[in-house]
Write a protein that binds this DNA or RNA. Structure first.
Length: 270
DNA sequence: ATGGTAGGAAGCCTA
């Protein structure tokens, strides 16, 4: 049993449905976790996605902002979601899937971007981002992460020097400041979670999943950041046989500013 | 050093 899992900040599902279709025809993930769907549940394009083979849909949407969804060819044993920071923001979904190795839990997160000023005293959005990470850390540990779990999403932080085009130039730019990186590393350590992507593509290699729209030639300039992540608990980390950042999608017409990140899980009996 | 682009909702906000 092999499961291909992908995460993608789609930046609005409705104008980019055909991109989901194109990605599906090329990589055919069994499970696709989306962020920033920007649509209420009753307007989510469920029928079109079911036609693609994603018979099982978990959605947590809201008007205009945020919104997450999990599209799956495999049935869900459970679906749940959680609010953070006493806000109603749609930033989390979790499902469990029954596999040959027992239940697999999948968390899909959209962590707050944090605004422009990297100071929690001056900027409420940055404060919110740090508080959100603290809540993740407190929750996603102990019994909660004792089994086989995957955590994916747009975490809006590029933790390593080689997760950004210039470590030095981004040290004071939200997404790569030391205080955020520490907070994210603390979430990871509390799990215990492993960075499944960096397990396979070591930090010696530069790796990005997001390129700003505000660039004349995003590919040539290549000023990217790795904001999108796939983590795994110890119980499944060694089952991940392959990872890929599907950069092609960033070059499509009217693209999302994020590229999909893909992981293959080999869950066959040994 | 600044401003550059995109989506959604409604004439600005967030990324």
């Amino acid at each position: 049993m092999t499961i291909t899992l992908a995460t993608w900040n789609i930046n609005s599902i409705r104008p980019r449905l055909h991109h989901v279709e194109r990605f599906d025809s090329d990589r055919a993930p069994d499970i696709l976790c989306l962020q920033e769907t920007k649509v209420m549940n009753d307007q989510f394009p469920a029928a079109a996605l079911k036609k693609l083979g994603y018979e099982h849909l978990a959605i947590n949407g809201q008007k205009s902002y945020h919104g997450v969804a999990i599209l799956s060819r495999l049935p869900f044993a459970s679906v749940d979601m959680r609010s953070f920071c006493s806000k109603e923001d749609a930033r989390h979904l979790e499902v469990t899937i029954d596999t040959d190795h027992g239940p697999l839990r999948i968390h899909n997160f959209y962590v707050p971007a944090g605004g422009d000023i990297p100071d929690p005293e001056e900027n409420d959005k940055f404060r919110h981002k740090l508080d959100f990470l603290d809540e993740m850390k407190a929750w996603l540990t102990g019994e909660e992460t004792a089994g086989a779990s995957i955590l994916v999403g747009d975490l809006n932080i590029a933790p390593h020097e080689n997760d950004v085009w210039s470590h030095k130039q981004l040290l004071k730019v939200v997404s790569h400041t030391p205080v955020e990186v520490e907070a994210l590393n603390a979430v990871q350590a509390a799990g215990p979670w492993q960075d499944a992507v960096r397990n396979r593509i070591p930090v010696e290699h530069r790796l990005y999943s997001w390129w700003s729209y505000r660039s004349r030639d995003w590919s040539k300039a290549d000023k990217g950041r790795r904001l999108d992540h796939i983590w795994a608990t110890d119980a499944v980390a060694d089952k991940i046989s392959h990872v890929e950042i599907y950069r092609d999608a960033r070059g499509w017409e009217k693209p999302s500013d994020h590229a999909p990140v893909i992981a293959k899980l080999d869950l066959s009996h040994s």
